[in-house]
Computed example of a mutant assay.
Amino acid sequence: MQMRKIATGVIAFSMMGAAQSVLADTWRFGLEETEGSVQYEYAQAFKQLIEEKSGGDVTVEILPYGVWGSSYSALYDAIQGGSIPLSFGSGFLGGTVPESQLMNLNYVMPNDQLETTEILNSDAFMKSDAWQQSFRDRDLVPLAALPEGYQVWTANKAIHTPADMQGLQIRVMDNSLLRATYEAYGASPITIAYGELYSALQQGQAEGNIQPVWAHENMGFYEVQDYMIFAEQSQFIANLIANQEWYEGLSDEQQQMLESTIDEMVQKGHDIQTNLNEERLNTIEQNSDIQIIRLDEEERNQFRELARPIRDTFVEMVGERGGEALNIVLDQSSSSDSSSQ
């Protein structure tokens, strides 16, 4: 199991050096996740496209979780410093780019997962001043969004309503908006390092967990939980980001190659997460007796009403720029054909 390899699998390497020190023909790509993850499969497809389009002039070096280390702040520091010019950043990124917590809001995106992918990667959102400047003010450039599937709850008791979640010590990423959300649901959110989560669930230090399906299977979390609850409250969304100095130092041809590849990866990324989550759910059901709960619309509405005020909390936390980005998503979602969250 991947989690049990992390403690001994860390390969130390220097994070020192500015963007200029990165070899022009080597793009180091940092991942928050291990091999077998959505990010890893995305990175492999991205690597193949870039290396083919460049005719071998560019090599993409993939750095999964456990290779660069296990502290997400170290990864983000490395991106800002330029020693790792490309990377994913998700929930923990809120400490570096507060506006990125937009991706953690519940019941905001459309129900259709592909539609969410297309909205977040549209020029209207991704290239908006609000979203771009949120990152560029921190020496980063947002390139794409990768939804990795619905966030699914696990617990050792059945959860159908907020009353069932009262006092539940559920593990969330170190993200103030996520804590506020689950406090609104009545839970007692706690933060535990990803590599320590399995043992924390096993020993009862945490009573619940929030992950996309593939992660529950990949890290074996389902082995130490009794229920898996699908509330469809949000997808796990990773932001593909680049060091700003590195990005602006690319030639016009390289930037065009990067942009065309990212465009191709929108559908590819959706297909990767869809297939991986379906496969992993089948594995979980075949290898365990965990009980699957899918909330109906009435049950979901109870959580939705509690989550709605968190939108205002988000704007209060991060400022007007975050509110502008949120409004773009809401406008794009409301104009879509499928039902909105």
Results as ranks from 00 to 15, higher is better:
243 N>E: 00
164 D>Y: 11
141 V>T: 14
33 E>N: 11
98 P>M: 06
223 E>Y: 12
77 D>T: 06
296 D>W: 12
300 R>N: 09
253 E>Q: 11
251 S>L: 03
259 E>R: 05
243 N>T: 03
263 D>M: 01
65 Y>W: 11
6 I>T: 11
306 L>Q: 13
331 D>W: 08
170 I>Q: 03
284 I>G: 02
23 L>K: 15
265 M>N: 00
316 E>M: 06
115 E>R: 15
28 R>W: 04
135 F>W: 07
160 H>K: 15
284 I>N: 04
44 Q>I: 09
142 P>S: 07
244 Q>W: 00
267 Q>D: 02
105 L>E: 01
338 S>M: 12
309 P>C: 10
287 N>V: 01
168 L>S: 08
35 E>L: 09
49 L>A: 11
191 T>I: 07
291 Q>N: 02
296 D>F: 11
302 Q>V: 05
146 L>M: 04
250 L>P: 06
278 E>C: 00
328 I>F: 03
152 V>L: 04
208 G>S: 01
13 F>E: 05
62 I>P: 03
39 Q>D: 07
295 L>G: 09
10 V>R: 15
198 Y>C: 07
171 R>I: 01
181 T>G: 07
198 Y>H: 14
164 D>I: 13
155 A>C: 11
13 F>M: 08
172 V>S: 02
69 G>T: 08
260 S>P: 01
320 E>M: 08
331 D>K: 15
156 N>D: 06
40 Y>T: 09
148 E>S: 11
47 K>M: 09
249 G>R: 08
189 P>K: 06
250 L>H: 04
106 N>F: 04
81 G>L: 06
120 L>S: 03
336 S>T: 13
48 Q>R: 15
312 D>E: 00
175 N>A: 09
299 E>K: 14
33 E>F: 05
277 N>Y: 11
176 S>L: 06
164 D>A: 13
179 R>Q: 13
124 A>L: 09
182 Y>K: 15
183 E>I: 11
236 F>W: 02
316 E>V: 06
161 T>F: 01
269 G>C: 09
298 E>F: 08
260 S>E: 13
233 Q>R: 14
232 E>Q: 13
308 R>M: 12
47 K>A: 08
200 A>R: 14
278 E>P: 00
195 G>T: 12
